[in-house]
Design a protein around this nucleic acid. Structure first.
Length: 299
DNA sequence: ATTTACGGTCGTCAACTGGC
DNA sequence: GCCAGTTGACGACCGTAAAT
């Protein structure tokens, strides 16, 4: 069995165990009527919702009685059962509102490691691109190219390029096209007019030059075109590719953020368990003390 | 030293949610 | 209804510890 196969097996078992737990709680066969009746496509869904919230478990238990008597779960109820649980942020914030000690997950982390803070503080760019070397390139209003290094603090590491050789961008022009390192070790990205911005020097103060492209586009180049005037199939394909790259990049960041939140959520739950355990212990001790006071030994 | 088992992380897909 | 954000699932990859 391959590694991934093993993992899948473990995950499947976990899902099954969870479902069995739910089944034992509800003493019925919702799983039979839901999961097994679903297509392979929907099995992903049941797997996805294999850990329902307590409310959902209650709902399952409630609905199961009638479902068992009727033998049918209508699509609406099934939909409710399969509905996704609230996000970690929501759950945690709900907990936080109940328990003052539990910190809330912030809406936006200012010191987020993934996105450079300096980009958020500058003029609203029309587009942001991340290069293969981790740098961020923002195309601001007016054609200014701003480059930032994620590792740097504040404005440091932010470079701005104003395109002085062109007025208004030509219709349908490529805004930015980033290329990986060129043969001479420089970094290149492309700007309107089929020109190339070349990072001529690296280090603390890199310099940039606008050149005519000398080589064909390297692999992995992402085209960025303004959607105004796309005519040819190639342009449409480029636009689609650009959109896809953008979506993937955003989702990549979102997944990172989601995992971070999940960790935070689990940590919070663990700390809450610890607090409640201490609280419980105290209450038990208090109860014992009160028992001793109220019922003194006769002998 | 090599293999195996396991856990962690990442990128991607797809379903879903909520705001507009 | 559209769109951006969220998140579970999955596969791939890597590191580590134990077994051989």
């Amino acid at each position: 069995m391959s590694k991934c196969g093993r993992k899948k097996y473990i995950k499947t078992n976990l899902r099954q165990m969870t479902m069995e737990t739910i089944e034992s709680q509800q003493d019925g066969g919702v799983r039979d009527s839901v999961a097994e009746s679903e297509s392979a496509h929907m099995q992903t869904q049941t797997g996805q919702n294999s850990i329902p919230t307590l409310a959902q478990v209650a709902t399952i238990a409630e609905t199961d009685e009638s479902a068992e008597s009727e033998g049918v779960i209508d699509s609406h109820k099934r939909r409710e059962i399969l509905s996704r649980r609230p996000s970690y942020r929501k759950i945690l914030n709900e907990i936080s509102s109940d328990v003052p000690g539990v910190p809330k997950i912030e809406e936006e982390k200012s010191e987020e490691e993934g996105t450079p803070p300096n980009i958020a503080t500058m003029a609203v760019p029309t587009s942001i691109y991340q290069t293969s070397t981790g740098q961020y390139i923002a195309i601001a209003q007016g054609g200014t190219i701003q480059i930032s290094n994620p590792g740097s603090d504040g404005v440091q590491g932010l470079q701005a390029l104003t395109m002085t050789n062109s007025g208004a961008p030509p219709p349908g022009a490529t805004i930015v096209q980033y290329a990986t390192q060129a043969a001479d070790g420089t970094q290149q990205f492309f700007v309107p007019g089929s020109q190339v911005v070349v990072q001529a020097a690296t280090g603390d103060m890199p310099t940039y030059q606008i050149r005519a492209p000398t080589t064909a586009l390297p692999q992995g180049v992402v085209m960025a075109a303004s959607p105004g005037s796309l005519h040819s199939p190639q342009q449409l394909a480029e636009e689609a590719t650009r959109k896809r790259e953008l979506r993937l990049m955003k989702n990549r960041e979102a997944a990172k953020e989601c995992r971070r939140r999940k960790k935070e959520y689990v940590k919070c739950l663990e700390s809450r368990v610890a607090v409640l355990e201490v609280q419980n212990k105290k209450l038990i001790e208090e109860l014992e003390t009160l028992k001793d006071i109220c019922s003194p030994k006769t002998d």
